[in-house]
Design a binder for these strands. Sequence first.
DNA 1: GGAAATGATGTCACATCGTGCCAACATGTC
DNA 2: GACATGTTGGCACGATGTGACATCATTTCC
Lengths: 193, 193
Amino acid sequence: MDDAPQDLRARRHAATHQEIHRAALDLFEQQGVRETTVQQIADRAGISTRTFFRHFTSKEQAALPGQRRLRQAIDGLDVPADATLPDLLSAVESTAAAAMSAGDEEARRLARLLAAEPDLRGLAAAQERQLAQRLRARLTALRPELDPRTLLVLAEVAVAVWNALWARWAETQDTDPLDLYRSAQADLRAIVR
Amino acid sequence: MDDAPQDLRARRHAATHQEIHRAALDLFEQQGVRETTVQQIADRAGISTRTFFRHFTSKEQAALPGQRRLRQAIDGLDVPADATLPDLLSAVESTAAAAMSAGDEEARRLARLLAAEPDLRGLAAAQERQLAQRLRARLTALRPELDPRTLLVLAEVAVAVWNALWARWAETQDTDPLDLYRSAQADLRAIVR
DNA sequence: GGAAATGATGTCACATCGTGCCAACATGTC
DNA sequence: GACATGTTGGCACGATGTGACATCATTTCC
């Protein structure tokens, strides 16, 4: 996508980054996270362990995508001035769903790995909490006149639906994300009513 | 509470456990998690580092309570046979709220620490995901005839409300948990509708 | 074109984490 | 009291993660 002939350094850096990422994914799939050492990942990527730690803070980090897309989606979130609370919720969820369907093949690998590797789940959970925080901040910035408590609940519920969606999508490898999204919305209404 | 003169070994074990926990909490508050070594905690608790790692798998673990109460609340969860989905949700949430108000002074310390220490938040997030998993399993066991997808959403939403509740309680040091609970329920209805 | 600044990488040393192993000791059982 | 069982500490070890410095490639500036 971004083939801009930027800095040669920046390009090499990004290439190495990707290289490490792929090496980690491969090795984790083959032998599991616990059994894989940073040394092995570095060898396969053709770099030193010191360089590895300049790209990622831990081997678990190397496998996870970093949520760039979702973070951007949250920061760029906007709604019409007269949006009601339910409007807000659907706005948040639809942007999340959009960011989700964008990731394709690698997302599958990730999902499989996450299901099998508790170590990765821990880090993923931490990342998710950060997203919830960020979403909450964005919402209060967007609607300072609303009760912060309400917006907190809104953010948490949005993340909850996102969680359910993703878990379900990871389990049933063949379903369309949009179907899941719609059914989750129906479920939500039936539950709360 | 459980002063049963059980095994002398078991009592000593539990005492050491508590000792380590308190030592960790004290040191983390004084100097932060990153700056505290397992060696320091062990010294303060009067044990060796080897023994420390027989009680906790990491220094972060030593600070966190382990969620015994919540796990029990989930496993012991039960509902009348004719309970609707909203009934289920309130049942789950009220048991969670009950388990919450039980922890008193130490919960405050924990909340402060969690707010200040990202390392602890990571582990707490992982624990929370486990609780969500457990709740989901319990719900499907309780209501096998319902759509698993719906129960998944239900479990996630319950955890979301629980999150919002706890975050809010940690921020406003003086509010009654029950008030927060009621207002969160109202918010939830306003959001979904 | 050629310095000089900037940045990425590798090597080394080091503190810490976490675990397997074994010997010493305390507790519970008969 | 003798034996079985469980807990502890000490030791060694591999792995994680970071600071410091030298080296080399690139950018920038003249």
